[in-house]
Design a protein around this nucleic acid. Structure first.
Lengths: 134, 134
DNA sequence: TTTTAGAATTAGAATTATTCTAAATCTAAC
DNA sequence: GTTAGATTTAGAATAATTCTAATTCTAAAA
């Protein structure tokens, strides 16, 4: 399920297309700076401000998500589907997970907060396999 | 349960004590800047760097938590007990919630990520009551 | 086609957030 | 009281993000 829309079909400007492509093709979660570097190699005239503008645009349009854990810069995530994150408190490694939340947990959260729910996600903090055996 | 330790019993320096007190007494989640302003009124000689150092120290010691949602500065939370957050996607309002996660969800997350679990939390995003009726 | 209005992009400056540095001060063990 | 190590201070430095103003692009109207 959750087939990812083809980039060409989204009616984006060339710059926004490149930014989205960079994020989708990355095998890690990139910072704005890294997105800029990679975008620049695909479209050398692109400017830093445009990368930030595009990131905001793509985020608002729901094509990407911004993740931020209070350590340095925000990172960006190609939202192909809802998912959760695990973050290493030692090295900062970020891993995607897919965890199904029981309906009663989601309902309870929405009800308790009185918020109109848009999304809900789990964040696990701990030591990644690498850091835990050192 | 979860009685909050008395600040005086933690063996903190005066500066760290003040920072912790400010965070505990705030009725909102403050930014580092706001913590600095309030700390300064209690202890006028405190410096900005010390506030940041203290925040890091208190965070590492588990007395406070840093929350960060990719919009502006990090905010700090007096961790009296484990809890979750709801954040308004429109106005940024941040609300604490206490939601009990089923054991199997926690176990699944730990198992899936292969991380040595330290904490796990839920983040709900949506419109706060105020923003949803406009 | 031109014109035009609005949106997007660019380059670089400006702002905001956070960390670093080096000197001064405090603290607790000797 | 000395001393070593940790902490604090002030301000500089760096990093992250946003703003500004000039330019370019785009698509619809004339």
């Amino acid at each position: 399920m959750s087939v990812t829309a083809d980039i060409k079909d989204l009616g984006l400007t060339k710059q926004r297309e490149v930014v989205l492509q960079v994020i989708r093709e990355a095998d890690e979660h990139l910072t704005a700076n890294e997105v800029f570097d990679k975008s620049k190699s695909l479209l050398p005239t692109i400017s830093f401000a445009t990368v930030y503008n595009s990131l905001r645009y793509l985020k608002d349009a729901g094509h990407i998500a911004e993740i931020s854990f209070g350590n340095g810069a925000s990172r960006f995530d190609a939202m192909t589907s809802r998912h959760d994150h695990a973050i290493c408190t030692k090295c900062g490694k970020l891993v995607d997970m897919e965890i199904e939340l029981p309906k009663e947990v989601v309902d309870f959260a929405a009800c308790f907060s009185k918020f109109k729910l848009e999304s809900i996600e789990l964040t696990l903090r701990g030591l990644c396999p690498n850091c835990s055996n050192t």
